[in-house]
Design a protein around this nucleic acid. Structure first.
Lengths: 379, 379
DNA sequence: TTGTAGGCGTTATCAA
DNA sequence: TTGATAACGCCTACAA
């Protein structure tokens, strides 16, 4: 790990010239530039980021703050941010709250302010006013990926419309006893997303002229296990009254619902339809109809915006960015609502598992027109 | 973001004293220390990491190199590393290859050598000789989490023993037509793990006096989808010849196997038993019997070792660390091998899903004695 | 116990 | 086009 003056000495030039050459600055003759580059490369020289950071005030790194790494949405978004950053020569500092919400204070008041990063991507968390103030005080660009956070621009799908679309899909198939398998605000995760999704469900149900009551919501807490339990209980009831359609606010919860249905001996989608949100990597094998979103793309876009700002690129999109698209993916977990008379007698075919082919079903109602770039396709 | 001399001025002392006080060095009177601390706190002072790093040569950050973030093992291990690091005041720099293996060169030759990190945790990747050399040249402590990598100490379970245990569990239940649902070396992931696991399977099968042929292995590539497809094909065969037991080298592949069995109309575990490795968070809802490992703990331990080395803690465990424990978790996906006569007639009960209760099964054979701290328990 | 001053490795300013 | 040289902000002998 040679230093810049060793390179300079070897090249017979000053450190200033080496610096200029290596950074691609103007004012260096092609000859010397090539020579310096060759020598630096041969010596394996790489500038120390601390020194460069001290001198320039730029760290070539951005931070990513997550409630927890180990979840589909977060790990995907991290991947997206990383991809974009890496391609632009930036490093990524990861700050995980580890699901605890502890060390939260430390993250904010120590690591982040150490001038180690040039910008911050916050994944889907609710921030306290104090934290928001601290961030703004940093005078560093910040962007949220995941849910609207007051006082911050954010990148996400239109959560309300997404769940509305999902619900409308089921309504279009004739379902009338529909429940929302809702998530909550674990992990210090932003509350606005669950709230928006619940609203989307209610929008659609109400628009269909159906009633929305307390029984319309099952609390799955964004977890397979909880979802499975709660759905199992709901499906155990009177066949004439149990839900025929389940709108899950996340695919993971939808998996729980599918497993619960299977264990209850119900066929999907003949007895009960399930639709999720996400398009998790397991969704295809589960045959789960879902609303797809792409957190990797969201992460990439967030990083792009931050970088554009840091590098003063022209046309900086400094305001609230446009909404990310979502898309209905038709698979086998949704189908026409069972006839009421039939519903009670169902679940009698032998040896079928979680997944049933739904003899040619499709959204019998076109997805709403103004639905934010949403499309539908069959996979 | 005040600098150290502003704090010094305000406190009426020199920068040296401020530095000493803040870093908890000896040689500062309690009075001045308290005063300095209070003032620094009030001013919101935090030392610049670049400056501190330049001066001390320590960055208070360690790097984590992963093939891809978005997978159970990796995101868990990252979480573990992060947890430990955070508790010790270190930052975590994430380097993801993003599944591509591209930018690999960049990661190694730019980011990491920029003196931005004090040590490196490599997750489960095969390293080229050149990369290994580069790492050693850094003169920074390195540790691998996940699989043995030549020339590097590593932290992992005994993969061979783990799969051997899994296989013996099935053998103990009387299974004789057992297949290994194997993973591969995607993502530039280390090849040694798949190889070790295959060996463990063969160990057990051979020890039981059964034959191991080409048909004993299904290639699931560590992916649910592939696993499901390949198992579906295997189960479609002659009931008298198809496997009655499946040892999956990962839980995700085991899920694929369970789904394939369900779609084929086979009951689990009456018709076919499935055991996995990992204890993925979905395993419980799937009722999957599996060999548990704890990547979070592995990550924590790796970080601890690195930190101990960096801080010159006494008793530095600089050598190859002890193996991580694994443990058999009994659930509902494994049961006694079907009687051959019965096997053909199976799968006739109505409306059962993926998961079947296995009327009281258990390992009918105690787990081998010398099996590396493995235990068994029912969940 | 406290202060002074040099150095860490780069970048940037200003001359040449 | 190049080269001195002063920051950058902090840490730490060394002196007091």
């Amino acid at each position: 790990m040679p230093s810049i003056d060793e390179v300079a000495a070897r090249a017979g030039v000053s450190t200033a010239t080496v610096s200029r050459a290596l950074r691609g600055r103007a004012g260096v003759s092609p000859d010397t530039r090539d020579r310096v580059l060759a020598i630096a490369d041969a010596m394996g020289y790489v500038a120390s980021s601390s020194a460069a950071g001290l001198a320039t005030g730029r760290n070539m790194a951005i931070g990513v703050l997550v409630p927890v790494v180990h979840r589909w949405y977060f790990s995907s978004a991290i991947e997206g941010v990383d991809r974009k950053l890496r391609s632009r020569g930036y490093d990524l500092d990861l700050y995980s709250l580890g699901g605890h919400g502890t060390n939260r204070e430390r993250v904010f008041h120590r690591s982040m302010l150490r001038k180690r990063i040039d910008g911050l991507v916050v994944l889907c968390m609710a921030l306290t006013d104090e934290e928001l103030a601290a961030l703004h005080a940093l005078e560093q660009p910040v962007i949220v990926v995941g849910g609207p956070v007051e006082g911050c621009r954010h990148i996400s799908i239109d959560d309300r419309a997404a769940v509305r679309d999902a619900t409308e899909h089921l309504l279009g198939l004739g379902h009338e006893r529909i429940v929302h398998l809702a998530g909550g605000g674990s992990f210090g995760i932003d509350f606005s997303v669950p709230r928006l999704r619940a609203a989307g469900f209610e929008d659609a149900v109400a628009a269909a002229g159906l009633a929305v009551g307390p029984e319309s919501t099952l609390f799955g807490d964004y977890a397979v296990g909880t979802a499975k339990d709660v759905v199992a209980r709901a499906l155990a009831g009177d066949p004439g009254r149990r839900p025929t359609g389940i709108v899950a606010s996340s695919d993971e919860m939808a998996f729980g619902a599918l497993l619960a249905a299977a264990e209850a001996g119900l066929r999907v989608p003949e007895d009960v339809s399930v639709i999720g949100i996400d398009d998790h990597e397991f969704s295809e094998v589960f045959g789960l109809t879902t609303i797809r979103q792409d957190p990797i793309a969201a992460g990439e876009r967030a990083a792009s915006i931050l970088l554009a700002e840091l590098e003063h690129e022209p046309g900086v999109p400094t305001d609230q960015p446009a909404t990310e698209p979502h898309e209905l993916i038709l698979r086998r977990s949704t189908g026409p609502a069972p006839l009421l008379a039939t519903a009670a007698s169902g679940s009698s075919r032998a040896g079928r598992g979680v997944i049933e082919r739904a003899g040619g079903h499709a959204a019998s109602r076109p997805m709403g027109a103004g639905l934010n770039r949403s499309r539908a396709r069959t996979v």
